[in-house]
Amino acid sequence: MIIVNFLESFGRYLMMLGKTFSRPEKTSMYYKETMRQMNDIGVGSLVIVVLIAFFIGAVTAVQFAYQLDGTLVPVYYIGYIVRDSTIIELAPTITCLVLAGKVGSNMAAEIGGMRQKEHIDAMEIMGVNTVSYLIMPRMIGALVVIPMLVAIAAFVSVIGGYIAAVPTGYMSSEEYVQGVRSFFDSNNVFMMFVKAVTFAFLLTSISCFQGYYVKGGSIELGKASTNAVVFSDILILIADYVIAIVLT
């Protein structure tokens, strides 16, 4: 039964994706909605992303300074470790896990609320392709903005590492900068953007799917919102593992 339900949901999810990328009725309306979504996702999440990224960088620097203290590993390695761990893993993964909670649950609740208040039915009767109109702008918005947020998060993490490590006396400014500039591999940045785009797609499509097909009342809407976060998080972690295997 579980397998049948899974296959049914997966089939519906694929059909939803097929309908999402169909020709818009009016490009200007879709453009306007996409801009609104970009603003909501990007500007709306900037503060939390910056805050989390800053502390991730700071904690990474402090932890590694503690671990490497008294070893033969050069101290400037801390800058290198902070840079690569945030670029490869922490910035894309943690940012997208946070965004799954913030943006994903919001999308599921917003679309689910529209379903319950018959807004989606109203649009359907007008002749609007509701899957496309409600999901495509969100997906495009997320695919454009989330990689930007991830890049900002990586940058802020490195700054966070600096502020945690240098003024507190773990190392000098020159040492940290030397570490940040050492052993740079541009493939890691490529991997960061691959992860960001993949996670953005997953969290948006899963959240919209959960909201669009919600049935029942407020309890079901709450469940859909929770499922959006849980399933997005699980799939982000699985995708993270797969990308790590494929790209390293």
Binding site: E25, K26, H119, D121, A122, V128
Partner: peptide, 26 residues
């Protein structure tokens, strides 16, 4: 055209934008 039991007006749009929505779209 359809009038829904709960009116189904889009909350984030004004009265004018609600009425204009089909015109904007089609």
């Amino acid at each position: 055209g359809m009038l829904f039991q709960g009116s189904a007006l889009f909350d984030s749009l004004t009265v004018e934008e609600n009425v204009r929505f089909p015109l904007d779209m089609f």
